[in-house]
Design a protein around this nucleic acid. Structure first.
Length: 582
DNA sequence: GCCGTTTTCGGCCCGACTGTTTTCAGTCG
């Protein structure tokens, strides 16, 4: 069993233990164990298992190491099977209903004997739920509504689309006279590829009108909670948004707290406690003394900080960019002053892997170059599909070579400041051969090799297929390494550790496909791969002019992968890229 | 279940809001 499959099971065990009413810290241990596992590279993981040293990894102790080992070796775990058999799947499903947690589900199950969603819906209607102690008519109605909408409510949302909703709201908040500062926090601010909901943090001494403005936004479908300092609303799309309004002096602490991640916050609080301080959204206050953190903050006992850099400094750390706050070593690096200077959108001088109307793009070559020039880019790579992608109107040799001529002529015409590289997104055929002969590809500036069919191949076949392409000297870079479509399609089965090894050995680039639906190769793999010498290209995979903007999503993911400008081909100068491609 | 150089036991981050309660448990982040 692979490490990611094992991580999923650990995650599930955590959920099942929750429904059993287990110790919350034990539950957390399974969840964080799963995340630690996901962050390990496959070969590193294999080595640790082989050496019996899994428990040397922080967050994995003897018990988890034993269970992981068993799953890895046998593909099964008695403890997990028994646990799973003891809990009806309907109870697990109920956790998706807003307002229902483990304790309430347990009560519903034990007192009413209900273990399916249908049974629960019926009991909400006929009044049985409302009669339970701790429940009432309102809870029953809320649960019934939640069941009806659980598909829309439960799902996550693409970072890109959530950001498009969030930014106008931040701008609107900042325009209000009562608002001193406003930011979107949460996983959106950390740049996670998908987000569950939006979190807005506002500094104001006069919260009431701001709260009213927010709850009455035209796109709000439902106000699910409304208090003096916090409200929650739900939009038509099912996306939920929280607004928290705090006094200006507490803004930085609230922003940090609600940016998370949970793992990062836990580590930060522990760090504060080691210094005799208590960190919360209210402030950084002495751990001892009378009252709650909130009361201490209100008495003015909190350290004062102007911005998040000041907060980190108070804990003897350098500023940790939100992208890195995942509890994956950023605390230690910030303490040692060893955080990387992360890549920024402004570092990009161009991008590769873009399409035109010659294959399945919506804009012509000239229109795409115009758009690139408007972005101030020094170069733009065109890589239309090859003939095997007939569904995408892929180019055959004749059309390809004609396009190359067209590009060369455009460069010579001096019409654009932006230089155009002539490339192709060449299909990797099912056996790893490429869709064009070497002598055809040799006439191009560069080649992106991508898999577009036979996704169902077994891992070994797919891995060999991709490695064969990566080893081809004509291949400049590997396109969307796993073929995943976020929230829509699972990645195909491939041993990425072996692919990364082959790419490093053959000096082949792997792209970070910046399409918000792909973000592939995943950010979790980049840190170690780049440290080992893998070069990245942030490729928008644009199918229209606006698509070039997707590099922003790519940079956001690259930052989460600790990438610096030097790790990314598109930060190179035109001359450097030309030299690389020659 | 994890962790640790004041600890191998006893901690483990902290607060807002809701709905059901008459002081708080559950949920959520």
């Amino acid at each position: 069993m692979t490490k990611n499959e094992i991580a999923e099971i650990l995650e599930e065990i955590g959920v099942l233990l929750e429904l059993k009413g287990e110790n919350p810290f034990k539950i957390r241990a399974y969840g964080s164990g799963a995340r630690v596992l996901e962050s390990l590279e496959s070969d590193e993981f294999e080595q640790l298992v082989a050496d019996g040293k899994l428990d040397s990894v922080k967050g994995i102790g003897a018990a988890l190491a034993q269970k992981i080992g068993e799953l890895h070796e046998t593909g099964a775990l008695g403890f997990y099977d028994k646990l799973k058999a003891s809990i009806a799947p309907g109870l697990v499903e109920m956790l998706e209903v807003p307002g229902l947690g483990a304790k309430k589900i347990k009560a519903i199950h034990e007192k009413l004997g209900i273990d399916t969603m249908e049974g629960l819906a019926a009991a909400c209607v006929d009044g049985r739920v409302a009669e339970l102690s701790g429940f009432g008519a309102k809870s029953a109605a809320k649960i019934a509504e939640g069941i009806k909408n659980r598909e829309a409510y439960g799902k996550r949302h693409l970072w890109w689309l959530a950001n498009e909703v969030a930014q106008p709201i931040v701008a609107g908040l900042r325009e209000r006279p009562e608002v001193k500062r406003a930011e979107a926090a949460g996983s959106l601010r950390r740049g996670m590829e998908t987000v569950g909901d939006l979190d807005f943090i506002v500094a104001s001494d006069e919260p009431a009108p701001v709260m009213t403005w927010f709850c009455e936004l035209p796109e709000v479908k439902e106000v699910t909670a409304r208090g003096e300092t916090k409200s929650s609303v739900r939009f038509e799309s099912g996306l939920q948004a929280d607004l928290r309004i705090v006094p200006p002096g507490q803004f930085v602490f609230a922003l940090h707290h609600f940016t998370g991640s949970k793992d990062h916050n836990v580590a930060m609080r522990q760090r504060a406690l080691e210094r005799g301080l208590s960190l919360s959204e209210w402030g950084l206050v002495p751990a001892d003394g009378e009252g709650t953190a909130k009361e201490k903050a209100e008495r003015g006992e909190s350290k004062e900080v102007a911005d998040e850099a000041g907060l980190f400094k108070a804990l003897d750390m350098t500023f940790v960019p939100p992208a890195l706050r995942e509890g994956l070593g950023e605390i230690e690096a910030a303490e040692a002053g060893e955080l990387p200077q992360l890549i920024e959108v402004g570092d990009l001088r161009g991008a590769f892997h873009n399409h035109t109307t010659a294959s399945d793009g919506r804009n012509t070559l000239a229109e795409m170059v115009t758009a690139a020039e408007a972005l101030g880019w020094d170069y733009l790579g065109i890589a239309d599909h090859s003939k095997a992608s007939f569904q995408a109107n892929g180019l055959d040799e004749e059309r390809l070579l004609k396009q190359v001529e067209e590009i060369r002529a455009l460069n010579e015409s001096g019409r654009f400041k932006t230089h155009v590289f002539a490339g192709s997104e060449v299909d990797i055929l099912t056996d790893g051969r490429l869709d064009f002969a070497d002598e055809v590809m040799a006439q191009l500036d560069y080649v992106v090799a991508s898999v577009h069919n036979a996704f169902a191949q077994d891992e070994d076949t797919m891995t060999k297929r991709i490695i064969r392409a990566v080893e081809n000297p004509q291949v400049t870079m590997l396109g969307h390494a796993t073929g995943r479509l976020l929230l829509r399609r699972e990645p195909y089965k491939v041993n990425l550790a072996k692919v990364i090894d082959a790419a490093i050995a053959n000096d082949t680039i792997i792209e970070l496909n910046a399409s918000p639906w792909r973000l592939d190769l995943d950010w979790r793999l980049w840190r170690k791969a780049a440290e080992r010498g893998l070069l990245c290209a942030i490729n928008p995979d644009a199918h229209e002019c606006d698509g070039l903007q997707h590099v922003r999503a790519g940079v956001s993911a690259a930052r989460k992968g600790w990438l610096q400008p030097k790790h990314v081909l598109n930060t190179w100068t035109l001359e450097q890229v030309k030299a690389r491609f020659s």
